[in-house]
Design a protein around this nucleic acid. Structure first.
Length: 819
RNA sequence: GCCGGGAUGGCGGAAUCGGUAGACGCGCUCGACUCAAAAUCGAGUGGGCACAGCCCGUGUGGGUUCGAGUCCCACUCCCGGCACCA
């Protein structure tokens, strides 16, 4: 055995073995239970960053652990290859996006291999490949015929200087990132998928996703935002029209003191022609970005329209205001404002001196105080005509009944979730397979003409917009329906369209004749999905939606795509997200070159639990390297004494039995940590403790000592094998095994080795630690109390008091309560 | 602004069900080896004091409990998402 730990040589050895045995090829015909472990595929930006390394190390550890547990593991990898950065790179370097992307894929594939991730590369896919996106186009045309696709207008960020549509990230403080021009909102026609048709199922099924973090399920619940309420109408005095509003609080209807209109509400737009204040609000609403964060951060501002609405129950006249916090996108673009019982309405009312009328009192009978904030809890109604005295719950129903009876409103279920706009006015994406015909309208591309291939030899120029719009050879076509000259859609799909079904395609990536085949149900649902918390809502919700759509198309049998989900935290350096602009990046490749892949993997798994942020530390990496070198040294020194004798558990000395207990405690702890808790950091700490103990026992070269040492080192190697596969592959062979460690079985803790005859009990007096006592493991409270009180320091604290109570927690502590 | 998460030694973190706060690693101090340094190995390392012991200590302020880092209430600060970044 090599005297030194040389990562490079060890890596080559293991790589050669895995390649020769095609170790990570997943086979459908394998009879063992399947386990599909998937890490979110990367955008091929050019080089791996630490976030990737963390994500993929977690996935690889889980995959290798499950393999050792006897599962038939599928762990594939691919490329989320469409997206904006490729177009930016094209502008900066004059390389077409396709060429840039494919080059990046090649470089990153080599990096992933170097890190030792056990992927089944035979299933690799790239979403920019026509053989991939053709099925997405195929599905889209099916959904169009099923009525799940429609066309509507939606706002985009328009850069008036560059004459192009900007992504939200390209809008900085309301201005275009390149031109610096103030961005305008423009309504343009786009394609939508009816995800809201699935809103109830997407919401209700969250309760069954027990393998998902509660945090993510909560975020999705809030995102879908189902609320039960009443849709009602307020006639506008002097105009033959009504304001439609939705409220979740019909019980506060008698507290309405004004109406709020979105600046882009038709009435606002009409008034703006003559009213300067309203016009200003409309102008403000149309400038700046379209993101919700940007809109919500604005100061609450408004303007009185001079119009009056008529209260549907009291007939009272209510002023109508244009208010910039009312969003045209939600509901009807108008709200009934109840400042006494809604905080936003309260703030607006105070800003403009509008009346606040309390109509719900706290249920506990306390005074209603509206001087500092709104009272938004349920309570008991006052000043509410015939509904006075009812609880909010009862009044909700009674008022809803009354409105329904009078035809002025009806109960309604409303969602915050909006339909999914899938059109992007960009080049580097999958073409939307639709044809616009003057006579027939929008016509889907027939199956036999798919895929609509994206031309790849293009030039991207700043401010030029999508080159597809300048390529008649792309867009000029004939109508599949009537044969007349027609134009292709030049918008491309949102890249979430590709990432919403790639996990299914991995099951049958070589299927040329269909989107999916029966192998999809052989492998999916994904047993363990791993990725960044930043995908908690959008990607994970769209993928769930897609899966259900595909189920309804008869392409998969399951209801949900991901049984278990692990959302990993970000990688920070100096307390901040790594970024080029901050100059705090760490290149994983540099670390691999210096210390070897095992060290990088060990550090990223050791430095923090996977779902928390990870703070990068160069000296921490060195510590990981030191540990691996010590482990290598322990095995080398042990083997230096020749083959170890067989273990006879009955013939061990007290010290040897204690060490052997430590070995089996480590197995128990690591199995729980890796298999159930996913706290790889504590599993590694346990192995480090074991190695420290083994190091202290090195001097014992008796038969029993060497046998326990062999068992201890094998245990350390087996537990670390998923985390540091290269070194463990090597050491396992050195320890005398023919079979590779990747195919070895996960160790089992021996119950007998774990047994203790004595335990240490903590002794407290009035909850404060006062001593420790050693007792037989099966000692009862009486025995424990007697021994504890005999302990001098405990006796000193109990002296002169009377014992009120003794709390005994077997195996842990005894607490004497004395006064 | 709305939604979600976090805060524990000099640093990363541990404490799994309310039961010894600080496992493990980093850093630092001292010692061994060395002509010397690096590497390595050993010991120590939350703060304070009248130091076999005691007091204080898990972002802040209150509460529940024999006992609270852990549960409850009210706050502060930091981070993530907000529908065209992926």
């Amino acid at each position: 055995m090599d005297d030194q730990y040389r990562p490079r040589a060890i890596e080559a050895e293991a790589q050669a073995y895995w390649a020769e045995h095609d170790t990570f090829r997943a086979r459908e015909e394998d009879p063992r239970p399947k386990y599909y472990c998937l890490s979110m595929f990367p955008y091929p930006s050019g080089r791996l960053h630490m976030g990737h390394v963390r994500n993929y190390t977690i996935g690889d550890v889980v995959s290798r652990y499950k393999r050792m547990q006897g599962y038939n593991v599928l762990q594939p990898m691919g490329w989320d290859a469409f997206g904006l950065p490729a177009e930016n790179a094209a502008m900066e370097r004059g390389v077409p996006p396709a060429a840039w992307t494919r080059e990046n894929i090649g470089a990153m594939r080599e990096q992933l291999k170097g890190l030792g991730f056990g992927y089944d590369w035979s299933r690799e896919l790239a979403t920019c490949d026509p053989e991939y996106y053709r099925w997405e186009q195929w599905l889209f045309t099916r959904l169009y015929r099923r009525g799940l696709v429609y066309r509507d207008t939606a706002p985009v960020n328009w850069d008036p200087v560059d004459q192009t549509v900007l992504a939200n990230e390209q809008v900085i403080d309301g201005r275009g990132w390149r031109s610096g021009a103030v961005v305008e909102r423009r309504e343009i026609p786009q394609w939508f998928l009816r995800i809201t048709d699935y809103a109830d199922e997407l919401l209700d099924a969250l309760d069954g996703l027990e393998g998902w973090p509660e945090q993510v399920r909560n975020m999705q619940r809030n995102w879908i935002g189902r609320s039960e309420g009443v849709a009602l109408r307020f006639p506008v005095a002097g105009r033959g029209e009504e304001l439609a509003v939705f409220t979740t609080r019909p019980d506060t209807l008698y507290g309405v003191t004004y109406m709020g209109l979105a600046p882009e509400h038709p009435i606002s737009l009409e008034l703006a022609e003559h009213d300067a204040a309203v016009a200003e609000l409309v102008r403000e609403a149309r400038s700046g970005g379209t993101s919700e964060a940007e809109l919500a951060a604005r100061d609450k501002r408004g303007a009185d329209t001079g119009l009056e609405a008529v209260h549907p129950l009291t007939g009272e006249r209510i002023p109508v205001w244009v208010a910039n916090f009312v969003l045209m996108e939600y509901g009807s673009g108008a709200v009934m404002a109840v400042p006494a019982h809604d905080q936003r309405d309260w703030e607006f009312a105070h800003a403009y001196g509008l009346p606040v009328r309390g109509v719900v009192h706290p249920a506990d009978g306390s005074e209603l105080d509206l001087s500092a904030e709104a009272f938004s809890d349920y309570g008991v109604l006052v000043d509410s005509g015939p509904f006075t005295g009812m609880t909010s719950e009862r009044a909700f129903e009674a008022i809803a009944d009354r409105l329904e009876a009078e035809g002025r409103g009806e109960r309604q279920r409303q969602y915050r979730l909006r339909d999914w706009g899938v059109s992007r006015q960009r080049y580097w994406g999958a073409p939307i397979p639709m044809i616009h015909c003057e006579h027939c309208g929008a016509v889907p591309v027939p199956d036999e003409d798919l895929p609509v291939t994206l031309p790849e030899d293009v030039e991207i120029t700043p401010g030029g917009g999508s080159p597809l719009k300048r390529m008649p050879e792309f867009y000029r076509t004939t109508c599949p329906s009537c044969g007349a000259v027609a134009e292709r859609e030049t918008d491309t799909f949102d890249t979430f369209m590709e990432s919403s079904w790639y996990f299914l395609r991995f099951a049958c990536a070589d299927q040329g004749g269909a989107m999916l085949d029966e192998r999809a149900d052989r492998w999916t649902p994904v047993d363990q999905y791993i990725g960044g918390i930043e995908h908690a809502v959008l990607h994970l919700l769209y993928a769930r939606f897609y899966h259900k759509v595909l189920r309804d198309e008869g392409l998969v049998g399951s209801d949900e795509p991901f049984t278990r989900l692990l959302t990993q935290g970000m990688v920070l350096k100096d307390g901040a997200k790594m970024s080029k602009s901050k100059g705090n990046t760490v290149d994983p490749q540099e670390m691999v070159d210096r210390f070897g892949a095992d060290t990088v993997r060990l550090f990223t798994m050791f430095a923090a639990p996977p779902d928390q942020v990870l703070e990068w530390s160069d000296s921490g990496v060195e510590g990981a390297y030191r540990f691996l070198r010590r482990l290598h040294g322990l095995v080398r020194d042990h083997l230096g004494h020749g083959p170890a004798p067989a273990l006879d558990p009955q013939a061990l000395t007290r010290e040897q039995a204690d060490l052997r207990r430590k070995v089996h405690e480590t197995i128990a702890k690591a199995s729980d940590d890796i298999g159930k808790r996913f706290t790889f950091n504590t599993a590694i700490a346990a192995v480090m403790e074991l190695c420290n103990a083994l190091g202290r026992a090195q001097a014992d070269t008796s038969d029993g000592g060497r046998a326990v040492m062999q068992e201890g080192l094998e245990t350390a190697v087996l537990i670390l094998a998923p985390i540091t596969p290269y070194l463990c592959h090597h050491l396992w062979h050195e320890l005398g095994h023919e079979q590779a460690v990747v195919d070895a079985a996960w160790p089992q803790a021996d119950a007998q080795a774990l047994e203790r005859d004595e335990i240490e009990l903590v002794v407290q007096v009035n909850g404060k630690l006062r001593g420790h006592v050693t007792l037989p493991a099966d000692a009862d409270q009486e025995q424990a109390q007697e021994t504890a009180l005999a302990e001098p320091n405990v006796a000193r604290h109990v002296e002169g008091t009377s014992i009120k109570k003794v709390v005994f927690v077997p195996g842990r502590l005894i607490n004497v309560v004395a006064q």
